[in-house]
Design a protein around this nucleic acid. Structure first.
Lengths: 145, 145
DNA sequence: GTTTTTGCAAACCATTTGCAGGGTC
DNA sequence: GACCCTGCAAATGGTTTGCAAAAAC
């Protein structure tokens, strides 16, 4: 679970304080294999009987997101979730059954964006691509159903 | 603004009633050139001094979305917005300044999804691509700034 | 000791729902 | 006339904020 450490290092690098609550949230995030919501973390904290205020969780998430250590994704149902990530810009495939996610590189999106720019006249500054489906594990589970 | 009519026709085709309030919401949607939020419509209704309940606006939006006449998009800031659209599945480029949007076809996403599936082992069922930037008009405006 | 953070609780905002009245087929 | 739809207002659920106490530098 080096991921938790990664998040803390990012916080320190930003000149902010690697406080206890932040470490806790970082660990909760690292413990998740994929997408999670603020509520998930709050629930997980409860299960581990660690006492962290809701507000603190939201603030930590916001901070990590601002540092680029986690990224916000929006599930098909409109839920706001987040996924931990290691590189700056890329995309995710998210399992609709368990929330687990895998990162995928930038693939051909850059070219696609240029293509769109040419066709529509828009200047494309940013984009967002999310793929949803079933991870290998859940596919396996589905077969056994 | 034939778009309003398109929405109503979709409602009728679904065997539902093209009621007054729905027509109003359809027009409010059509009046927008791009992305809008429920709050935008409510505000627009207020400006036009048409009295439509908030709940009705939400229900109409939900209905249109279910009919595939509008599509939900999530802005970079996490806001839930919608865009009117004419075809079943495609994507949008949304202007971050004015919200105007343009549709773009499916481009090479299908192939991309297959590629991702092969690499990650995930079974990709759905995806979502949103591009953000500046529309031609706003680029123009920016130049004059 | 100064500055940043936390935690709590209250405030907020967007969205949903129950239900009685009104409109549509 | 039966059923669908609307509007209101209250309930809900997620997220943010103010502020005093606590922790980190």
């Amino acid at each position: 679970m080096a991921a938790a450490e990664t998040l803390i290092v990012a916080v320190e690098d930003a000149g902010l304080r690697p406080t206890g609550p932040r470490r806790i949230v970082a660990e909760l995030v690292a413990a998740r294999e994929g997408a999670f919501t603020a509520a998930d973390l709050a629930a997980a904290a409860g299960e581990r009987s660690v006492r962290v205020g809701r507000a603190t969780i939201f603030r930590a998430i916001e901070l990590f997101a601002a540092l680029g250590a986690i990224e916000r994704v929006d599930l098909p149902d409109g839920t706001h979730a987040y996924v931990a990530c290691v590189v700056q810009h890329h995309h995710h495939v998210i399992c609709s059954a368990c929330g687990r996610s895998a990162e995928i590189g930038d693939l051909g999106i850059g070219a696609l964006a240029r293509d769109v720019a040419r066709r529509t006249g828009y200047r494309v500054d940013d984009h967002r691509l999310e793929l949803f489906g079933l991870c290998p594990v859940c596919q396996q589970a589905e077969t056994h159903t």
